[in-house]
Amino acid sequence: MNDQSNRQQPSIEELLAGQLPRAEAPADFEDVTMLRLLLGQLPRVSAPENFEEEVLTRLAETKKRKFPRRLRLPQSRSPWHWLAAGAGVAILGGAIYYFATRTTAPTSEVLPPAPAEQLRLVIPTDTMLEETIKKPALPTVETTKRTPDTFTQPSTAPTKRITPGKPRLHEDDE
């Protein structure tokens, strides 16, 4: 039974040979092959003897400087940075103000004088010399001599009124 079926059906080799289309090499097959042969035969280039040592040296240098300055990303300042900077400026400003005011104007001079001092008339000392003082010419008035006994202190009491028409200048008048 198997023999009969084998005779009737074509073998797989016959099938593949007769039915499948033949694939052909491309037109430039030889050229490409020769080219690849040539490229493959190019001498291999080797690294120099000290290759590894140079790499390690370069690597050490790279690690030392890490990244060039120009490649560093610009970093924004943190709020703490600005806070610290502000505090520093304030302290510095305060110190400058303190020392500046201390050297140019002492505190006693800066403070306003007391009201009484403010009103005091300041006379230059040279004007106080005896020669420079001019005694004012006071007008002489002819007055009658009064004794302390006759002089009565004016009082605000309503009972003691001084009447202008009766001056009491002398004891004899009484």
């Binding site: 291999r44 690294a47 290759f51 590894e52």
Partner: peptide
């Protein structure tokens, strides 16, 4: 790594 690949990379 260098020993294995250096020649290939140089080539």
């Amino acid at each position: 790594l260098m020993r294995v690949y250096k020649d290939d990379l140089v080539n």
